[in-house]
């Protein structure tokens, strides 16, 4: 008998690391919930990715919408085995110019949404007695980054969420881990000047920026049974940047 396909919801999966993760998991036979705020963009990606991609559009900062959408995805797919919370924003501001709006926006998307989507996912996974949640940190959150005090704080907070949730839901078979990308060549870093990208590549022992697909490889591992004894960790995919 063919086993029932597993189902994963990936927030922020219309582009970048989220989309690369969706493509990787579709290759592995998963049913993948594709999420973004823009329903038309979600539909367009779903049309490109094929029948096992399911549109799940909602704004991750709207907790009620997230709860409803994840419950709807569970009904549609019949199960939820994993959540990959790839939605996030990067904004910089030097100290002295940090405004309340920036603080609120980064906290809302990078921290509060990670908690609310994880909570909704735990609810969807609880009946199955197993599951995997993958959140995203950043090297800025681990090491600090000039001009990114707020962004760094929100990404450091993800580590706290990962470790706390892992302790709480581990006894029920649900694993929670974090991926810590280094400097990845995606839209999120599109605003970096070419010179700065070259500097960052030079500071990376592997002498280049990473790709979304390389980060997706770790996501693929963390939602799979191959990582079944790994929880509560923040794993870096940074080309050795932490050694610099």
């Amino acid at each position: 008998m063919t086993p029932e396909p597993r189902a994963v919801l990936i927030t922020g999966s219309t582009r970048g690391i989220g989309r690369a993760s969706a493509e990787a998991l579709l290759e592995d036979g998963w049913i993948v919930g594709i999420n973004g705020r823009d329903a038309a963009a979600v539909d367009a990606v779903v049309a490109e990715l094929g029948e096992n991609a399911v549109p799940v559009p909602f704004d991750v900062t709207d907790a009620a919408a997230a709860l409803s959408a994840i419950a709807g995805f569970r009904k549609q797919a019949g199960r939820v085995d994993a959540l990959v919370h790839a939605a996030g924003i990067l904004k910089s501001s030097p100290v002295g110019l940090i405004g309340d709006e920036l603080v609120g926006e980064l906290l809302s998307v990078n921290v509060a949404a990670a908690i609310t989507t994880s909570q909704a996912a735990v609810r969807a996974m609880a009946r199955g007695g197993n599951g995997s949640i993958v959140l995203f940190g950043s090297v800025a959150g681990e090491d600090g980054s000039s001009g990114q005090a707020v962004y760094s704080a929100t990404k450091a907070a993800v580590g706290g969420i990962v470790r706390s949730l892992a302790k709480e839901v581990g006894p029920r078979g649900i694993r929670v881990n974090g991926v810590v990308p280094g400097i990845i060549d995606t839209d999120m870093n599109a605003d970096l000047p070419a010179e700065r990208k070259e500097e960052l590549a030079a500071a990376t022992p592997l002498r280049r920026l990473g790709t979304a697909e390389e980060v997706a490889s770790l996501v693929r591992f963390l939602v799979s049974d191959a990582s079944r004894f790994i929880t509560g960790t923040m794993i870096r995919v940074d080309g050795g940047l932490h050694l610099s």
Binding site: A63, A64, L67, S68, A71, Q119, V122, R123, A124, A126, R127, E168, V169, P171, R172, I174
Partner: peptide, 24 residues
């Protein structure tokens, strides 16, 4: 806390309802 999530999911499934976070 996790048993609570399981219970909520079971009740939602049985009665085809969805509780808000406040209700949970």
């Amino acid at each position: 806390s996790i048993g609570h999530m399981t219970l909520v999911a079971e009740i939602e499934n049985e009665f085809d309802v969805m509780f808000s976070t406040e209700e949970v």
